[in-house]
Simulated assay, not measured.
Amino acid sequence: MEALFSTEGVNPQHSFRRWRETLVGRGVPLEQARLDDGPFAAKLEAASVGPLLLTRVSHGAVRSEATRALIQRNGKDSTAVVIFKLAGVSTRSQDDRSSVQRRGDFVVVDHRPAAHESTTGSQSLFLELPRERLESVLGSTKLYTSLTMGGDVASAALTVKFFHDLVRVRDRLDPDSAARMASVGVDLIVASIAERLAQEVSRPLHGTVVVQRAKAFVEAHLGDPTLDPPHLAGAVGVSLRRLQELFHERGQHISDWIWQRRLEVTAKRLADPGCAHQPIGTLAFGCGFASQAHFSRRFKERYGSTPREYRHAAVTGADIRAFRPLRRF
């Protein structure tokens, strides 16, 4: 990873002050105070993998607080942060929930008032994501901020290992592979949170969690042409009838949701310059459409244009927001 800052070589009397100045200069909305009197060491590193920016932070024992004023000044209220714990121990508090993270755990925090304490030798990997990417599947971030995703959750253990390996091999990935792996990583994060929520919530919220898990499964398996309501019900461990009832309670139909997400993801890839060299049929098949003709018909019904017209508008700089869905599922 590229080193952005290190206290190595800095006068120990000034190392903590320089660290705080670095955070302020990079727009990090945190007030920090030391928790011990020993020599303070810190390091900040970063690496990009496709559209994702991964930041590795190492530092001594500190208490950090994100205040409302700092957050407003920072201007990142449309994103949430996923934090992978690489070393040390941290205690985080947000949205009336407190939790502890150790090596191998990860946690989500939002840009709202929060606090955390870390031990000496703390090291974490930070990943900022659009909040909408999480909430479109999992619901409000207030359901899972400061909720530890630990090694006892199988998908969380897989997610942590995936990102550890992704950082290690990132330089060997071509741009297309990096973008695909970044997308896989985000899907794993969503699936891990959904699984963890299923362990956490009370019975009255169980139906909401089942739907969240179902939507997370859809996101992770959009490219599977066999994905259908019975397949989905089996994957989340409920009867098809029960899953249909839960979706209907939320004004949705299972099959409509699957097709909606397939079309939305394909439209996003059509507008992505990184996918410009890929044939439209390849993009369609990658999102689970069995034929290009079927995809084109569905796409035009929803967006009022052919996939080729939509891609051309994006490439030429036209405002593709003009292609608003003609109908909702």
Rank of each mutant, 00 (worst) to 15 (best):
V186M: 04
S202F: 12
V218Q: 04
L222K: 01
A156W: 02
A179Y: 09
V201M: 06
A198Q: 13
R170I: 05
V184L: 11
R180W: 09
G234S: 15
S177C: 09
T226L: 13
D174F: 03
E200W: 10
L240R: 13
E245L: 12
A198W: 06
R203C: 05
V153F: 02
V236Y: 05
S183N: 14
Q244F: 07
A235I: 07
E245C: 07
Q212V: 10
V190R: 00
V218M: 07
H231K: 15
T159R: 02
A220Y: 06
V153N: 10
S183I: 08
S239M: 08
S183C: 11
A194M: 02
L240E: 13
L222N: 03
A154W: 08
G237E: 08
M181V: 12
H231E: 12
F217H: 14
V160T: 14
L158I: 13
D174C: 04
P229F: 02
L188Q: 07
E219W: 06
L188G: 06
A154E: 14
V218W: 02
T226Q: 15
P204W: 00
F217I: 11
R168K: 12
A235W: 08
V190F: 01
D165M: 13
S239C: 06
S177L: 10
D187Q: 14
A156N: 02
K161T: 13
L222G: 01
A233W: 04
G234L: 09
T208G: 10
P175H: 08
H221W: 07
L232Q: 05
R180E: 13
A235E: 02
V201R: 06
V167L: 15
R196S: 11
H231P: 04
G223K: 08
V153I: 14
E249T: 13
F247T: 01
D174E: 10
R242S: 12
P225Y: 03
H221T: 08
A198H: 09
E219V: 11
F162D: 09
R242N: 14
A233Y: 06
D171F: 09
H164T: 11
S192H: 04
L197C: 06
V218L: 07
R196P: 03
A157H: 03
S202E: 15
L205Y: 11
